[in-house]
């Protein structure tokens, strides 16, 4: 079930990037798109009945820490991408005075 929801999020994000004309909305789409994959990593790392992986003598079952670590890196990359995208959009706005892609393509 979670995977299905996740997949819907994934496709939604992709759909927004492709269909939206506004560059800012595209960035939002990109974020949704990326987040869906981040969430996917979190889903797969969850172990039933597991606790956070903190070394503790009582608990033997804990969630897989590795995907969390991985996704931390991916989130950093995502933030970098978003900020770069926004910076570029500002430049586009300065040059064209518009951020609607269908208008930009005409110019």
């Amino acid at each position: 079930m979670l995977f299905v929801l996740n997949m819907i999020l994934f496709l939604l994000g992709l759909f927004i990037i492709i269909r939206e004309s506004n560059l800012i909305k595209k960035v939002i789409g990109l974020n949704i798109f990326q987040s869906s994959v981040f969430i996917f990593y979190l889903i797969i790392s969850k172990v039933d009945g597991g606790v956070p992986p903190i070394l503790n003598d009582d608990q033997l079952i804990y969630s897989n820490p590795l995907p969390h670590v991985l996704i931390l890196t991916a989130i950093v990359v995502g933030i970098a991408t978003t900020s770069l995208a926004l910076a570029l959009i500002i430049k586009v706005k300065q040059k064209y005075n518009s951020i609607e892609e269908h208008e930009l393509d005409k110019i």
Partner: peptide, 23 residues
Amino acid sequence: SLAAIQYLFIGSIGAVFILFAIG
């Protein structure tokens, strides 16, 4: 800048697909 941002979108889509595949 426009070419860069368009490349950014498509490049990120590609990267996210790869990330998903790795997962």
